[in-house]
Design a protein around this nucleic acid. Sequence first.
DNA 1: CGCATTTGACCCGCGC
DNA 2: GCGCGGGTCAAATGCG
Length: 482
Amino acid sequence: MEPTWNNDAILHSHSTSDPVMSFRGTPLVLDELDFFAHKIKESEDDLDHHQSVELNNVDTSLDLLTKNNSAGNRSTEEDATLETMDDKNEFVALVTELHQMNAENQRLRELVDQVNNNYNALRMQVIKLKQKQHNHGNNRVIGEKEDMVPRSFLDIGVAEKDESSQQSSEEKLRDQSKSIVELMDQCKGHGKDIAVLEDKLDSGKESSTKARMEGRQAGQEFSNKVPKLDQASETISMIKKARVSVRARSDSSMIADGCQWRKYGQKMAKGNPCPRAYYRCTMSSGCPVRKQVQRCAEDRSVLMTTYEGQHNHPLPPTAQAMASTTSAAASMLLSGSMPSSDGLINQSILETQNMPTLSASAPFPTITLDLTQNAPNSSNSNSHTLLTPLLPHNFISAPKIFGQALTLCDQTKLAGLHDSHSNSQDATSLFANTLNAATAAITADPNFTAALVAAITSVMGSPRSSTNATNNSSGDEHCNNN
DNA sequence: CGCATTTGACCCGCGC
DNA sequence: GCGCGGGTCAAATGCG
């Protein structure tokens, strides 16, 4: 189904023309949450519709069974009649349970509707705030651009003191999105329960051929849904194994990500004269998160940082940004492995963009966030002002484009690609498919956009803001410059 | 002296 | 089975 995008000029003002608003992120959040909420509602309606259909089928089966059972009572074979009676009782119990599940589904749907209503109300508040800010802030645009100094994670969230109310609304929006995700999880569990019911129906004694066929037909449609739900669970578990690699130009030994790290090893990697440093998170004992830092062999100014694992402790807001990024990016990555009709996108875009992909030998799926190619003034701390406004747009198109590797590589190329796609119907369809792919990622983590922006900002930030990180030798200072 | 870093040793998986 | 390479461990070392 085609996604419904809000054509509100305000919401879309960020896309290319208003870097300030784009940088602030709110319209992006609105856009993506709009689409996100739409998809959630769509899925919920779909599930509800199917369950009603299936329930009707089961009811029909029950009627048939009752009729057959009545015929059986008139039979002279008493054993067969008793067996049929048992079957009927079991079947009635299952149908009753199915009715209960349907009622539960209705309840969940009402919750989703409620969340959507709250979301819409908050969205309107944010739009009003943005309008107000836009009207009063036109004279400040230049000044704000000048304010676009690199922000580390430490800066995120405190740099917009004059927009505290807007930020509060954003937080509310994200909370609402989290609620939706939680509801989706409930629905997922709900679907599994339905699958159990279907198994019971399927494995029960044969009572009536017709009733069995009807019931199985009903159950079959459930079982067709179940693999998708199970696949989502598998995706979640795989996310923990996925890695996110960030390529960024930096003179410092490490990028500032808000976490505390302790170096536990250093190795010379094959094919790279620069050593690879290994760090583990020390914000909590037993935190499994680790990262590797290594300079790129081809370009020593590029710092490769690879994150692995998920934190098992509360994170400061600044670190939360990167954590959300890695988590959601992993979700995005794994959503790309799900069967869909996007193969054409993968192929065509990879061909036209010549994007780097991972080697198949990678132990874990890895996403690469390449922030180096659109930083013409890498030594200039303001270089991200060009990069950032385009990011969320490309983020939305990114998930399935790269299959096993998400690469935010050349922002201008991607933006151009998007534009060219919009010129043809086929391309529009492809883009729509890509948006569908992005839904999975957004579902996994609705904070992704803001987190990504924060991450990029952090990566591009000045080294002096890396107060929390161990600013020691990450190996690059021992790098062989030959 | 306590903590973080360094660095060689060790472990493990993979390919041949 | 062996070698290689990536990743981790832990004793030694350095630093504040």
